[in-house]
Design a protein around this nucleic acid. Structure first.
Length: 353
DNA sequence: AAATCGTGGTA
DNA sequence: TTACCAAGATT
C-alpha cells in the first residue's frame, strides 16, 4: 500500500473516531474552519509530556479557568502556578511553562511563533512539542514523534531495532506518512490510534484501520513491538522528613531549590535522600517523635522510604531550616505527591486543631 | 549522550 | 508487590 493511501485511511478513521478532548478542535469543526487556540494547544502539549490524558484533564481545566490566555499566565505568581501544578509531576515543566509564557507575552506580543524552529527556541518546548504545536495549531506539515507514533510505526513497518536506537528510523518512517494536507489532524490521528487501538500491551488489531498493511500484524508480532533496551533497576534511598506545627497552626515548610528533584516546590524540611541511612537533622529543637509509619514513594530513577518525625512547635520557634506558613496560606494540594503523602500520615499523629 | 526528572493506572 | 507505561525536555 502506498504511503498516501495509508495516511488517507488513517484520516478517514480519525474523522469517525477522533477522541473528544477539551483542548482539541475535532475534525468536523476543523473542516468548518475552526482553529484551535495556540495557547490551549501549547498548554495541553506541555502537560501531556510523559503524562496520560486522564491525569491532564482536570489540570487543564483549572489552568485555563485561572489563566485564560498567555498574558494572564505570564502575570501569575510563581508560587501559585507551582501549587496548581503540584501532583502532575516533572516540575521543570511548570517552571519552563512560566518562563515561556513570559517570553511570549513580553517579547512576542502574546502570539506564539507559528513555525517549528521558532517554537523550538522557547523554554520547555523540545522536538516533539514544537512539531505538535506547529502542526496542530498552525497546520504546518511537521512530523510529530511521541511514544504513540514510535509504537505505531514500529508495528506498521515491523521495525525490530530496539528503542531508543530505533528513534531516527521511526522518525523517518513517520515523516514519510505525514501528508501535505491536514498534517495537524494526521498527527492527532496517529496518536489517537496509538492510544486507543495500537496500545502497548494488547493491540486491537481486529478493528485497526491499518490492519491490512501492518507488517507486525502479518507476522503476528504486533504485541512484541516496539522492542526496548532493558532499564536499569531502581535503587532504594532513605530519608527523614520533619513535619512541625506551631501553636498558632502554622506549618514549617521549605521552598525547594529551583534545580533538581521537586525543584521549586514546597516540601517538608529534612535530610537528603541517599542509600545510606540518614542521621537525624531536625530543623528546630523540639520533642520530635517518630510518626510510626514511613512514606513509600517511587520516583523516576529510585524508590524512596521516607521516615517521618512530627512535633508541636512553640510560638517563638526560630527554625534553622524552612519557614512557617499559616494554614490559610497553603493547601495540601499545593504539595508534590510525596510531600502530601507525608502530610496525610503526620496530620493524624498531630491531632485536630 | 547518558542521566535526570513524577505520578497514577494497570497487569 | 513489582514493573511497565504515558502527547519528552534538559544538561
Amino acid at each position: 500500500m502506498r504511503d498516501e493511501d495509508l495516511s488517507c485511511a488513517l484520516l478517514v478513521w480519525y474523522d469517525a473516531h477522533a477522541r473528544d478532548l477539551p483542548w482539541r478542535v475535532g475534525p468536523a469543526a476543523r473542516a468548518a474552519g475552526m482553529r484551535p487556540d495556540p495557547y490551549a494547544v501549547w498548554l495541553s502539549e506541555v502537560m501531556l509530556q510523559q503524562t496520560t490524558v486522564a491525569a491532564v484533564r482536570d489540570y487543564f481545566h483549572r489552568f485555563t479557568r485561572l489563566w485564560p490566555d498567555v498574558a494572564a499566565l505570564a502575570a501569575a505568581e510563581d508560587a501559585q502556578v507551582m501549587g496548581e501544578w503540584a501532583g502532575l509531576g516533572y516540575y521543570a515543566r511548570a517552571r519552563n511553562l512560566l518562563k515561556c509564557a513570559r517570553v511570549v507575552a513580553g517579547e512576542m506580543d502574546g502570539r506564539f511563533p507559528d513555525t517549528r524552529e521558532g517554537l523550538l527556541a522557547l523554554p520547555g518546548i523540545g522536538p516533539y512539542t514544537a512539531a505538535a504545536i506547529a502542526a496542530i495549531a498552525f497546520d504546518r506539515p511537521e512530523t510529530v514523534v511521541d511514544g504513540n507514533v514510535e509504537r505505531v510505526m514500529s508495528r506498521l513497518f515491523a521495525v525490530q531495532t530496539p528503542l531508543p536506537s530505533a528513534k531516527p528510523a521511526l522518525t523517518a518512517l513517520a515523516a514519510r506518512l505525514t501528508p501535505a494536507q491536514r498534517p495537524g489532524d494526521h498527527a492527532q490521528a496517529v496518536m489517537d490510534l496509538g492510544a486507543t487501538i495500537c496500545t502497548p500491551k494488547k493491540p486491537a488489531c481486529g478493528i485497526c484501520p491499518l490492519r491490512a498493511p501492518c507488517a507486525a500484524r502479518q507476522q503476528g508480532i504486533a504485541a512484541d513491538l516496539p522492542r526496548k533496551t532493558p532499564k536499569k533497576p531502581k535503587p532504594t534511598r532513605l530519608g527523614i522528613a520533619y513535619i512541625g506545627r506551631r501553636s498558632d497552626g502554622a506549618w514549617l515548610l521549605e521552598r525547594r531549590p529551583e534545580k533538581g528533584l521537586l525543584g521549586g516546590m514546597l516540601g517538608w524540611p529534612g535530610t537528603g535522600w541517599a542509600e545510606a541511612a540518614p542521621a537525624e537533622a531536625p530543623p528546630a529543637p523540639a520533642n520530635w517523635r517518630d510518626a510510626g509509619e514511613e512514606v513509600r514513594h517511587t520516583f523516576t530513577h529510585f524508590h524512596l522510604r521516607l521516615a517521618l518525625r512530627v512535633a508541636d512547635l512553640p510560638g517563638d520557634c526560630a527554625p534553622a531550616q524552612g519557614q512557617f506558613l499559616p494554614p490559610e496560606a497553603f493547601r495540601p494540594s499545593d504539595l508534590p505527591t510525596v510531600m502530601r503523602k507525608a502530610f496525610d500520615l503526620a496530620r493524624g499523629q498531630l491531632g485536630a486543631r
